[in-house]
C-alpha cells in the first residue's frame, strides 16, 4: 500500500470521530493528586519552618578576638562602646582628664587634655551642641530623634544625623548652636534607639555567667557588645537573643574575646588598658595580642574552639 492511499483512506473514517476532533482545544486532565501532593508539601514546609526556627533560632554574627582577655582591676576594662570609660560624657564624646589626676601609668597629667589631645574649640562646640539639644548635664532629657551621635575627629566636631531627618534647616540650627566647622554625617540608627537597645541588651545579658561590656559606639553607629567568654564558647542562646534584638544584624556589633578572664597585678596591666578615644570607641586593634576573625550570622553555628 502507498502512503497516499492510506492518507485517503483515513479520510473515510467514522464521521463522529472526525467531528469530535474538530471540537475545542483539549485540556489536560486536572491533576488533583499532583495538586494535593504539592499542597501537602507546601503545608509541610510552611508548617515545619516555624518549628525549625524555634529549635534553631538565627544567631547574631560576631567577631572573635583571640587573646583579648579582660582584666578585672578597677577602671581598667575594655568596654565595647566606651560608656564606662572615665570622663565619657553624654553623646559618647570623651573629654580629657583633669589636671593633676593620675593617668593610667600613675603619672599626673600636667594639663587638661594631656592624655588625649582634644581640640578645645571642638570640645566647646560639642558642649554647645548638647546645650542646644537640651542635653547638658546628668539626667537630662533624651536625645532628639534625629541625633545619632557626635564626636571629635581631627579637631572637628562631627554630628551624625539619622537618615531621612537631615535637612538644611536642621544643619543650620546645629551650626547656629555650635558655630561653623561642624561636619555632618548620615547614620541609620538614632542614639536614643541605640540607648534603648543597650538597655535591652543589658537586661538579656544580666544573669548570664558571661562578663560583658556594652556601650553605644557612635562612630560605628551601633551598639557594641563585648562578650568575655573566659575560655568558653559563647552560648548560642545569647547570640540568638542578640539576633532577635537586631534582626537587621547591623545595630549590634558583637565581639567575642575568647581568652581567659584574668586578675592581673597593677604593674602587669600597664599597657593593656585601652585608651579611650573621642566617641568612646575602643578599637579592637588597640588591644594587645588580639587577633580577629569574623563569624557570620548562621543558623547552625558550631561551638567556638576551646
Amino acid at each position: 500500500m502507498k502512503n497516499y492511499e492510506l492518507l485517503e483512506l483515513i479520510g473515510d473514517v467514522n464521521e463522529d470521530y472526525v467531528r469530535a476532533a474538530d471540537s475545542t482545544v483539549i485540556r489536560p486532565k486536572f491533576r488533583w493528586k499532583t495538586l494535593a501532593a504539592c499542597a501537602a508539601c507546601a503545608a509541610l514546609v510552611l508548617g515545619a519552618y516555624p518549628v525549625y526556627r524555634a529549635v534553631n533560632p538565627p544567631l547574631h554574627s560576631y567577631t572573635v578576638l583571640e587573646g583579648g582577655g579582660m582584666t578585672t582591676l578597677d577602671d581598667v576594662k575594655a568596654p565595647a562602646g566606651g560608656e564606662s570609660a572615665p570622663n565619657a560624657i553624654p553623646g559618647g564624646a570623651y573629654v580629657s582628664s583633669d589636671k593633676g589626676k593620675p593617668d593610667i601609668d600613675g603619672n599626673e597629667y600636667a594639663a587638661p587634655g594631656q592624655d588625649i589631645p582634644v581640640d578645645e574649640a571642638a570640645a566647646d562646640q560639642y558642649d554647645r551642641l548638647l546645650r542646644g539639644m537640651g542635653m547638658h548635664g546628668e539626667g537630662a532629657a533624651s536625645y532628639p530623634d534625629w541625633f545619632a551621635g557626635a564626636w571629635i575627629d581631627q579637631s572637628q566636631l562631627t554630628v551624625a544625623i539619622v537618615d531621612g531627618l537631615r535637612t538644611p534647616e536642621l544643619e543650620a540650627e546645629i551650626t547656629g548652636w555650635c558655630g561653623d566647622g561642624v561636619v555632618f554625617r548620615d547614620a541609620k540608627y538614632s542614639h536614643a534607639y541605640l540607648d534603648g537597645l543597650m538597655e535591652q541588651a543589658v537586661a538579656l545579658l544580666d544573669g548570664t555567667e558571661l562578663n560583658c561590656g556594652v556601650g553605644v559606639d557612635v562612630t560605628a553607629n551601633c551598639l557594641g557588645v563585648d562578650l568575655y567568654s573566659d575560655g568558653q564558647a559563647i552560648p548560642d542562646s545569647i547570640l540568638a537573643k542578640l539576633a532577635k534584638l537586631d534582626p537587621a544584624g547591623d545595630a549590634i556589633r558583637v565581639r567575642a574575646l575568647t581568652d581567659k578572664l584574668s586578675s592581673l597585678p597593677e604593674d602587669e596591666i600597664k599597657g593593656f588598658a585601652v585608651q579611650p578615644v573621642p566617641g568612646g570607641v575602643s578599637p579592637a586593634e588597640d588591644l594587645p595580642q588580639t587577633k580577629e576573625s569574623s563569624q557570620p550570622a548562621r543558623d547552625d553555628l558550631p561551638p567556638l574552639d576551646k
Binding site: I10, V18, A20, A21, D22
Partner: peptide
C-alpha cells in the same frame, strides 16, 4: 481504521485525526 480509533484514548484519537485527517 474505525476499530483502531475506537481503541484509542480520546486524546490520542483526536491527535491522530488532527494530524492525518485535518
Amino acid at each position: 481504521l474505525d476499530g483502531f480509533l475506537a481503541g484509542l484514548p480520546e486524546r490520542d484519537r483526536k491527535l491522530f485525526l488532527r494530524r492525518y485527517w485535518y
